[in-house]
Amino acid sequence: MYTKRLISFIQDYYQSKDFIPLHAPTFVGNEKKYVLDTLDSTFVSSVGSYVNDFEVNIAKFTQSRFAIATVNGTAALHTALYLSGVQSGELVITQALTFVATCNAISYLGAKPVFVDVNTETLGLCPVALLSFIEEQCEVREQKCFHKNGERIRAAVVMHTFGHPAKVDELKKVCQDNFIELIEDAAESLGTLYKGQHTGTFSSLSALSFNGNKVITTGGGGMLLCSDEKVAAHAKHITTTAKQPHAFEFYHDELAFNYRMPNLNAALGCAQLEKLPEFIESKRALASLYQSELANTPLKFIVEPENARSNYWLNAILCPSKEHRDILLAETNNAGVMTRPVWQLMHTLPMFKESLCGNLNNSIFLAERLVNIPSSVLLTKEL
Rank of each mutant, 00 (worst) to 15 (best):
L224N: 00
L225M: 11
A235V: 00
S189L: 12
A235M: 00
H246P: 00
S204M: 08
E184L: 12
K195T: 02
L225E: 03
T201Y: 02
F210M: 02
H252R: 15
G191W: 11
M223N: 00
H246Q: 08
E254S: 13
A247E: 13
S189V: 12
T241K: 14
T199N: 14
A186G: 11
G191D: 08
T199A: 13
I183A: 08
G212W: 11
S189D: 08
L190R: 10
L208C: 00
D253S: 15
I183D: 02
H234T: 09
G200E: 10
A233H: 11
K236L: 12
F257M: 13
D185H: 13
H234M: 13
V231G: 04
V231R: 14
K236F: 07
V231D: 04
G200C: 10
Y194S: 08
G219P: 06
L225W: 06
N213K: 10
G196P: 09
G191T: 10
G212Y: 14
L208S: 01
V215K: 06
A186I: 10
I183H: 05
I183Q: 03
A187V: 05
K230S: 12
T241I: 10
A187C: 14
A207F: 01
H252Q: 15
E184A: 11
E181T: 15
A242M: 07
Y259T: 01
A242N: 07
M223E: 01
I216S: 06
I238W: 00
Y194W: 14
L205M: 14
G220Q: 15
K236H: 09
G219S: 07
N213P: 02
T239I: 12
E188H: 15
F248K: 14
H246L: 03
G212K: 14
L208N: 03
A247N: 13
D228F: 04
I216G: 03
H237I: 03
N258P: 01
S204K: 15
T201A: 02
S227N: 12
M223H: 05
G212D: 09
G219K: 07
L208V: 02
D185E: 13
G219V: 06
S209D: 00
K195G: 05
S206T: 05
A207R: 01
Y251M: 05
T192S: 15
A186K: 08
F248I: 11
Y194E: 07
T218V: 09
Y259Q: 05
L182C: 09
T240L: 02
